[in-house]
Design a protein around this nucleic acid. Structure first.
Length: 284
DNA sequence: AACAATTACAACCGCCACCAG
DNA sequence: GCTGGTGGCGGTTGTAATTGT
């Protein structure tokens, strides 16, 4: 544990940056408690990690946010709330701190965003929206409605206008996620992999994989698909069919749906949603 | 030019989850 | 099951730079 009175605080000098960079180059990321000693820095582990993650790490993009980035931040924030690390994970080169600062400065504060050269984007006024936040939930307790029981053993098939037909199946995924709601949260070390996986995502290829190496991709696909829903909700329906009992624990959106539906909405284990339902859920 | 106010963002703090012993 | 160490996150603060008066 660091002694606050003894470690240096405040702005980093170039010399400190150099020492930290050399240390990471030599030993790699991680083992942050050893970094101050290895690097010869009189800084706490957290400070070293933060400096590296937010400033020194290669490929960090600095400067103006582009229109596309702003748009993506807004949409992801609508979905995820203040889950800055998750949002930043979908913005290559941007750090969670950058995104958070940007949001607090420009969007939350209703100010104009910084734009790339030639951009004419004007950020629209944000209104309070219903955020679909992933939270670990179980069907067996707490909710207690008949609907919960009726769709307890389900998987989720998502039909969207763009992806034609996408099936989200997460067999094996629950193991890696330990049955909690947020893929990236539960596996933070996969964030980089998630970002890279997104670059090659194929919205038409959402089928499950049994390989453990591809679990991260499935996590990404889950979020991608959810985002897809928000973009293409017109004419979208979500259907539940009998399968995989753990799947629903990873589907907070369906839980939201479930909570608000009447018994009539479910027929033969299937729940259909109109586009209005979807828009309501995502706060449009 | 001097000072005040505002902006931008780096850095810190406290908390939480996970894991090993 | 408990505890301490660690990594990671979101909220908040500090402060240098910029802008306004």
């Amino acid at each position: 544990m660091e002694n606050r009175a003894e470690v240096k605080r405040g702005a980093w000098t170039k010399e400190e940056d150099t020492l930290l960079r050399i240390c990471i180059d030599k030993f790699g990321e991680g083992k942050w408690h050893k970094v101050p000693i290895r690097a010869g820095l009189n800084r706490c582990r957290k400070s070293c990690r933060l400096r590296w993650m937010n400033y020194l790490r290669p490929n960090i993009k600095r400067g103006y946010f582009t229109k596309d980035e702003v748009d993506l931040i807004q949409r992801l924030h609508k979905l995820l709330g203040n889950r800055w690390s998750l949002i930043a994970g979908r913005l290559p080169g941007r750090t969670a701190n950058d995104v958070k600062n940007f949001w607090n400065t420009y969007i939350n504060g209703k100010k104009m965003p910084q734009l790339g050269a030639g951009e004419s984007f004007k950020v629209k006024t944000m209104t309070k929206t219903k955020v679909v936040r992933p939270r670990p939930r179980t069907f067996s307790e707490g909710l207690g409605s008949s609907n919960v029981r009726s769709i307890k053993n389900t998987t989720c098939n998502v039909h969207s206008t763009r992806s034609k037909f996408s099936q989200i199946t997460r067999s094996g995924l629950s193991e890696s996620l330990k049955l909690t709601g947020n893929p990236s949260d539960e596996n933070p070390k996969s964030n980089n992999a998630s970002s890279s996986a997104l670059s090659s995502e194929d919205p038409n290829n959402m089928n499950q994989s049994s390989s453990s190496d591809e679990k991260v991709d499935e996590c990404v696909q889950w979020w991608s698909n959810l985002l897809d829903i928000t973009e293409n909700a017109k004419g979208t329906s979500i259907l539940f069919s009998d399968q995989d009992p753990v799947t629903m624990e990873l589907m907070p959106m369906t839980l939201e749906i479930e909570d608000s539906r009447s018994d009539d909405a479910i027929e033969d284990g299937m729940l259909s949603l109109s586009s209005d339902d979807i828009w309501e859920l995502i706060g449009q």
